[in-house]
Design a protein around this nucleic acid. Structure first.
Lengths: 199, 199
DNA sequence: CTCGATCCATAACGACGTTTCAGAACCGCT
DNA sequence: AGCGGTTCTGAAACGTCGTTATGGATCGAG
């Protein structure tokens, strides 16, 4: 009938890996379809037959990145103390972002013009918030916090961490400002804002 | 000696205005040097003789956008009550961002690959934080907050607002989550986290 | 071994940022 | 007025990008 396929699943994975590597090590500008094909030792046609477009390729990287990111947060050891866990999650959040800034900017910034997340991709980003929701719910159940929607509090805490990391990566913080030195205190304050009683 | 210049300051301003308009109304992808030149009725050479590169052109838009953004925050009427003012500033922050999302993403995201802010551009972004610092200092002077560096608290509050707005604009919030409904409470909690005594 | 179907690498297309280049436009001078 | 030389300008060229068309290569079936 036909010749056997070279553009197979193994190649798909290799392309995805190399795309992630290019992004991580050389940034968004380095990720071109031609460059990717050459680095993997195939042709641009292969990338198109497997992914269809650069947008779809980057979406695969995007989803993979959120998967890893969520896994890192899930791997944070829990203490049973919800407030401690919230702090740990916040610290792990920053560490994960700083470990691969380019991937973080693919997830949350739109540094690759060809790709913009679809509405259905929103749930991927929620993998970063779900561990938070659990800890907030525990804290609420323990009566430590102002009675409020757990999702609301989780979004606020997520935004606090994301905002700090995003400003840091974007180079928007004041000159000489050492975020590492204040980050924990900021997280503590962010959680403390929802305390029922001041501690 | 020579012929008079057509590529003068008036054209420079028209180019800057049109670049801002293109960005605001059609997004980053619409801003190309050819398109910009055509819309203004000149040639690409003109843009290059006046700005030198797309990077420099976008930097001008970037600085202008921060100028307007800072002016909007400065224009927020002050009540004399620092906590009220912090809340007002936070609300104005979101309103300003939502009024022109594309410009906001040029300021804080890197949606135009050709342009990346230089270290010296950091101070431009601080125009968004300076009004905050003032209000925080007033609150500190009144003994309302935990004794801490005003800059630290201001950065934390800034990041809270930026994080929320950034997640909202990026479409990362949970389905059906109405940020407008919770935004004020979140700001209150963020400030409350630095209270000396719980109120 | 031939045929026909299938796949794939090369080359092409339009658009991009940027630069080159030939000529048009102007001034001072005779 | 006419000319020379300098400066400025728009059009075209270059290399790269995402994407697509194409023609040849490769295989199983008969």
């Amino acid at each position: 009938m036909a010749r056997p396929k070279l553009h197979d699943e193994a190649l798909r994975v290799r392309l995805l890996d190399e795309a992630g590597r290019l992004l991580s090590e050389e940034g968004p500008a380095a990720l071109s379809m031609r460059r990717l094909a050459k680095d993997v030792g195939t042709s641009t046609t292969a990338v198109y037959s497997l992914y269809g477009s650069k947008s779809a390729l980057v979406r695969a990287v995007f989803l993979e990145a959120f998967g890893r990111f969520g896994a890192r947060l899930d791997a944070v050891p829990r203490s049973g103390e919800p407030l401690t866990d919230l702090l740990r999650l916040g610290i792990a959040y920053r560490e994960s972002a700083l470990a691969d800034p380019h991937l973080y900017s693919v997830m949350f910034g739109q540094v690759i013009p060809e790709f913009e997340p679809e509405p259905e991709d929103t749930e991927a980003s929620l993998s970063t918030m779900n561990p938070l929701v659990d800890a907030v719910q525990s804290a609420l159940a323990g009566g430590l916090l102002i009675p409020a929607d757990a999702e609301t509090i989780a979004v606020a805490l997520w935004a606090q961490a994301h905002g700090l990391v995003s400003l840091e990566l974007g180079g928007h913080l004041p000159d000489g400002f050492d975020l590492a030195r204040h980050y924990q205190d900021m997280l503590v304050a962010a959680v403390r804002g929802w305390f029922r009683d001041l501690a």
